[in-house]
């Protein structure tokens, strides 16, 4: 102890030097927006690479369950193929027609960082602007909606999780009711809430909740979850609905980023009339 004090006393000027430089650097990075942006973009590239390596290792441990999920998805997709259908009417012929345009395509991505412990959760993906990812694109897991891209660098992107109190989405309940808002109250990470659904709609436990095409971020009929509880709110004008999330938010790994080929067309057309989204 005596030696330590002696050491500090004799080298006091070095400690003072380091402290003053520390304060200056902190001030430089904290209060100068240019230095801050350089610092954070550099550190996010470095962190992104480290997180990718970490995820590469972690992925080995979940290969089995990932494989299972992909198999289930494959089965679902296979059943949609035309070879599974028989023509019941002899006069319909399938032709490749030109009156349909591809609206949504999918960019596969891996989740390299995910957090669900906070009230505003984000996850990081290993695809960025170089892969065509843009701010505002929707993100789905094989099981259902997962989030929305909020920030993009060259090689990585950050998505606002479904488990984020600022996330908002219009739901479709039971394939019919397209009304209300899906939000998260920050409590249970397996449940999201639907608000503002008037009580004259018929809502039952077990009804499927899917996306609508309203925000242009997701194609319609992507699963969000199933209704777990539905109660009339106090005053009895609206439903209080809890939805069990279909996607496994704590184990997000393989996801798809949704690219809407008409996004810019929609937004230029709508920006004059519609706020937000």
């Amino acid at each position: 102890m005596q030696n330590l004090l002696q050491f500090i006393r004799t080298n006091f000027h070095i400690f003072l030097f380091l402290i003053l430089q520390g304060i200056s650097l902190f001030a430089l990075i904290r209060f100068n927006s240019y230095h801050q942006s350089v610092f954070f973009s550099t550190s996010s590239t470095v962190n992104g690479n480290i997180l990718t390596q970490r995820k590469n290792i972690i992925n080995y441990f979940s290969l089995k369950s990932e494989n299972q999920k992909l198999k289930e998805e494959n089965i679902l997709l296979r059943t949609r193929g035309t070879e599974n259908y028989i023509f019941v009417s002899k006069d319909t012929v399938a032709v490749k027609d030109s009156n349909q345009l591809l609206q949504y395509s999918y960019i596969p991505a891996k989740v390299i960082y995910n957090n669900i412990r906070k009230e505003k959760n984000y996850f990081t993906l290993d695809r960025g602007a170089n892969a065509g990812v843009k701010k505002g694109m929707g993100v789905i897991s094989p099981l259902g909606v997962a989030g929305k891209i909020v920030d993009v660098s060259d090689h990585f992107s950050v998505a606002m999780s479904l488990l984020n109190s600022e996330f908002i989405l219009t739901p479709k309940i039971n394939g019919k009711i397209r009304y209300g808002n899906v939000t998260w109250n920050g409590k249970d990470e397996s449940l999201v809430q639907i608000t503002n659904v008037s009580d004259h709609y018929e809502v039952k436990v077990g009804h499927e909740v899917t996306t609508t095409e309203f925000g242009h971020y997701f194609p319609s009929n992507i699963k969000i979850g199933n209704i777990k509880t539905a109660t009339k709110s106090e005053g009895g004008k609206y439903w209080d609905i809890d939805v069990e999330i279909a996607a496994n938010m704590s184990q997000l790994s393989e996801v798809y980023i949704i690219k809407n080929h008409f996004q810019s067309e929609f937004s230029t057309l709508e920006e004059k009339y519609i706020d937000g989204n």
């Binding site: 030097f17 003053l20 430089q21 304060i23 200056s24 902190f26 001030a27 430089l28 209060f31 100068n32």
Partner: peptide, 17 residues
């Protein structure tokens, strides 16, 4: 000097260096 040019930390870091 920093406080007049709104660049906190820049001049102080350099001066101490």
């Amino acid at each position: 000097v920093d406080s007049f040019s709104y660049t906190p930390g820049l001049q102080s870091f350099t001066a101490v260096s």
